[in-house]
Each structure stands twice: as C-alpha cells, then as structure tokens.
C-alpha cells in the first residue's frame, strides 16, 4: 500500500463524518458555548427568490430559535433583479449587497466576491457558506458542517458531500461527485495533489471554515473558488486541516453541458494559476498513474484505486518491419 493510500485511508477513517452523528443539536450548542465560538451563516445569492425564503425560515427556526447554534444569518447578494433580498429580509435574515461591502475595494461579479466580503462583514469565528438554491433544505446543511469544527480544534475546513456512493449487491456505484468533479477535478487532483482526492465532492458549495483560515487565503471570484481553496489550505495546513460531512442528498437545478464547460474553464484557470505559482510548471511531479475514486458501505468510506497507464506507440514509419514491408512507399 502506497504512503498516499495510507494517508487517505487514515484521513477517511478519522475526518469523514455523517450528519447523523451530530443529530442532537442541543449537545452541539453546549459544546459550541463551552468552546466560546461564534458562528455566522452566509448565503451568497443571485436571483434565488424561489428557494431563499424557505432556507431562511428553516435555519432561523431550527438553529436560532429552537437551538441557538448560529449567531447570525446573512444573505450577501450579487445584485439580484428578483425579490431575493426582500424575501430574505422579511423572514429575518441580515441582507447585504456585495457592492456595498468594502466599497473601497470595488465590486466584482461572482460568488467568490460574496464569500470573500462575508469575512469582512460577518462576526463569527466560524463562517458556514450554504448556497441559496437548495430545494430540499434542512438544518443538517449547517449543523453537519460546523460540528467537526466545534468538536475538533485541529480541523479548519469542513466540506459537504452528497449522494454517497453505495455498494449494491457487489456492484459499486461511482461517487456522485458531479460531472465536472469526475471528469476534470478528480483526474487533476489524482495527477498533481493525490491526497486531495480524499474529498468526495471537492466542488460542493457548502462548507464551514474557521476565520483564521479564511482571512489568509485568496478568493477567485468565479468558478475556481472551491478548487483553489482546497489547494491553498492543503499547501498551508495539510490534509489534516480538512474534514468532510455526508449530508445525504441535495436537490438543486440541473446545469446544461455548456454551463459545465464554462465552469470547467474557470476551474482550470484557477488550477493552472496555482500550479504555476507553486513552481510546478517547469518541474512537474512525476505524473501519477493512480486514479482515485470512492465508494462507501454503511458508514465506511474507502478508495477505489485504479492504475491507468496511458501508453503510447511511436509513428509507424519508425518501425523497421513496417519500413521493410512498405519499401515501395
């Protein structure tokens, strides 16, 4: 077993959770208060009027009114043209236009801008980011993510994953990481940062992070923000700073292939920028032939490791037998 495989297996064992482990929110609140932590929830939005009201209702009802787990709920908006902000405000969220926060730094259009400005605007020691387009919202989207940060001081960044890969009568369904994850990000991580393949869903939009981390990493404004966070936190604090929580299912709008192409292009830009800044362009690591995916059985998560060697044949004209046979050519 390679060192990487051992590290990943150990990390999966210790740092991968299921939201059901933190079902008792009352206990979570007690631990949070004992640790003296404050928690802010940030929902970045752009035209989410259909789902934002329900999200605010659930989070305020379950995690502020019933159990005071979160200390503030803020919607940071990129400039919605629908009633997203009015609806969020009517149900009790603090609402901000991204362009009004840190006006001296200007305004850029993109989700990453809202996430970045949340660090300035919000007060919490922990900021939990949850997208505003979730149709099956539930308080686990927050409680499941902040819990590892409350209970484990060494954990700094907790990522959500969904649609847990399941084993069915010996046949394994591949990890439900999403098309861009499986086609672009996981192969890139397998080649350049194999330990990061341990994150089942690196692109999920829901994560909770300590302020001390957020204030020290750059934020791509567009699609690359999640990928670059993982690389930057990994470089600075190592795999042990991460944890991930299985939140079971997340229902949201389906994206077209063209939209996923745009997303992939943005992610590649952020990725290559980091490869460049880490000096990996001129001295590429020995390219890895091990591709890593995941499966889970019950509450155990394990890697599926595949050796994929892309061998090559030379041009036929360099083969002596070929030249002999086709002398006339």
């Amino acid at each position: 077993m390679s060192d990487t495989t051992k590290v990943i297996n150990q990390w999966l064992e210790n740092n991968t959770f299921h939201y059901g482990e933190f079902w008792k929110v009352k206990k979570l609140v007690e631990a949070k208060e004992k640790a003296g932590l404050t928690i802010s929830l940030c929902i970045p939005t752009l035209n989410e009027e259909e789902t934002i009201g329900k999200e605010i209702i659930i989070f305020i009802s379950e995690l502020m009114d019933r159990y005071p787990l979160i200390d503030e709920i803020a919607v940071i908006d990129s400039g919605s043209t629908d009633r997203t902000l009015e609806i969020a405000s009517s149900f009790g969220a603090d609402t901000y236009l991204s362009k009004d926060i840190l006006p001296g730094e200007g305004f850029k259009m993109g989700k990453g801008e809202n996430l970045w400005k949340a660090i300035y605007q919000l007060k919490g020691d922990i900021i939990c980011y949850v997208d505003g387009d979730i149709k099956n919202i539930h308080h686990r989207f927050v409680s499941g993510l902040v819990a590892p940060l409350i209970y484990r001081p060494e954990v700094k960044y907790v990522k959500a994953f969904y649609d847990r890969p399941l084993a069915y009568s010996g046949e394994t369904r591949p990890s439900g990481g999403g098309r861009v994850t499986e086609i672009l990000v996981r192969p890139l991580f397998s080649l350049f940062f194999p330990e990061l393949t341990a994150l089942v869903q690196p692109l999920s939009g829901e994560y909770a992070v300590r302020r001390e981390v957020l204030e020290q990493i750059p934020f791509p404004i567009g699609y690359g923000v999640e990928t670059s966070h993982l690389i930057d936190v990994y470089q600075k604090w190592g795999l042990g700073a991460f944890a991930q929580t299985d939140l079971e299912s997340r229902i949201h709008g389906h994206q077209s292939t063209a939209a996923l192409g745009k997303m992939s292009f943005g992610i590649l830009q952020s990725f290559l920028k980091r490869v460049h800044s880490l000096g990996m362009v001129d001295r590429l690591p020995e390219l890895n032939s091990v591709f890593r995916q995941f499966q889970a059985e019950g509450s155990r998560y394990e890697q599926i490791i595949m050796e994929i060697i892309e061998e090559e044949r030379p041009p036929m004209c360099t083969i002596p037998a070929y030249r002999e046979k086709h002398k006339q050519l």
């Binding site: 329900k54 209702i57 659930i58 305020i60 009802s61 379950e62 502020m64 009114d65 019933r66 149900f91 009790g92 099956n136």
Partner: peptide, 15 residues
C-alpha cells in the same frame, strides 16, 4: 413577532 417556530414547522410538515 415570534414567527420562526411556526413557519419552520409549516415548511417541514409541508415537504
């Protein structure tokens, strides 16, 4: 003024 619990339960029972 204390609408949160009721509204939360409506959404959850509704879904």
């Amino acid at each position: 003024r204390h609408r949160a619990t009721v509204l939360g339960n409506i959404v959850m029972a509704g879904e």
